[in-house]
Design a protein around this nucleic acid. Structure first.
Lengths: 184, 184
DNA sequence: GAGGTATGTCAACAACACTGACATAAACTG
DNA sequence: CAGTTTATGTCAGTGTTGTTGACATACCTC
């Protein structure tokens, strides 16, 4: 079972062995693993969202507003990579339902800085909790070294053009707000 | 495989360091990494699909029919986790367009065994090529040990109830066909 | 004031998922 | 054989999420 047993590169008897983890079969397995893992990974919040009238798009908006309080609409568009019309529909609902507030920018009053209300934070917690539990379980089963490799590969999977920016966002926590037009 | 062990998060002693990879911040970063990596990961085939009248659903069907030639409709439904109405729409197009053929089952003539035509295999290759290239690049940048960890974590991310079955499919290659009702 | 930017909104549309209902053919069961 | 279940296909309706395109308003910058 080569299920996950490609850690040690076997013996250097033939140098080709060192690249066995790059065979098409290995790559295909990685691709399918991504598919199935992501499928279950998103199923947790999806199930909760059903109780509300919300979908995945709402979850993503809530997640990143929680992550970057005060982010502007343009900044959020950048992160999510959707059109403003698409985001606006979602945002309008969340604001109507009292989960998100807008706040006119102090420096630039065209901008709307987005924040979660208490109710918004509640939902965010409710949504992210089972997902965190899943990742926590997977991490602790796999161990710290596996987690390190997991992150390394995922980081490399991100488009090189945006990698730096994305990793800054992921790792950066509450960084600068309102990334109006943050590059690519 | 017991130890869904996460009750013991964070010991007060110096051992705490060992569990630093399980902090909420680390978990949140993992979640976001999954989001961004998957986003770019699917962007390659998506771009190609635009040229055709197809979407992601077609890609998934093509991928798994290629992967398990002769799979039945029910088997495919199981793998994809969608309704038959949803799959049928996609399948009908692919058959009409000559990418997929149906074949009445020998043992059970109600069943339709699905295969890719030459054109179907062509498209499959065209779709999977950039994706494989992305994974190959990520793998080779991260190195074999990281890849091992990547796979370990992803495997643990899959629902425990279906993990065995899924990993059998992923690793098993051309296994038994027509998995009518494979359990979960 | 002109020009560009940030935001919001309307309308139309497409992809893809869902539920529910129904049809057909074949297999299984008593 | 009759009745039931299974595998598949199809029709109709609906919802979420994405897209373009067009347009309006408010505001910053020069």
């Amino acid at each position: 079972m080569s299920a996950s047993g490609l850690g040690e590169v076997r013996r250097p008897s033939a140098r080709g062995d060192q690249l066995l983890f790059l065979t098409d079969e290995q790559l295909r397995q990685g691709i399918e693993l991504m598919f199935f893992a992501y499928r279950d990974f998103t199923s947790d919040p999806d199930r909760i969202l059903e109780d509300y009238a919300y979908g995945r798009a709402h979850h993503r908006a809530i997640h990143f507003i929680n992550r970057r309080p005060g982010v502007t609409v343009a900044g959020l568009l950048d992160i999510l990579g959707v059109t403003k019309q698409s985001l606006n529909r979602v945002l309008r609902q969340l604001i109507e339902d009292g989960l998100v507030t807008q706040e006119v920018g102090a420096r630039d009053r065209r901008q709307r800085h987005l924040h979660l209300t208490e109710a918004g934070r509640d939902l965010e917690r409710r949504l992210s909790e089972p997902q965190r539990a899943r990742v926590r379980r997977a991490y602790s089963e796999a161990g710290p070294e596996a987690v390190s490799g997991f992150r390394k590969v995922l980081e490399q999977m991100i488009d090189e053009r945006v990698r730096k920016e994305v990793l800054g966002l992921v790792g950066g926590g509450r960084g600068p707000e309102g990334e109006g037009s943050g590059g690519a």
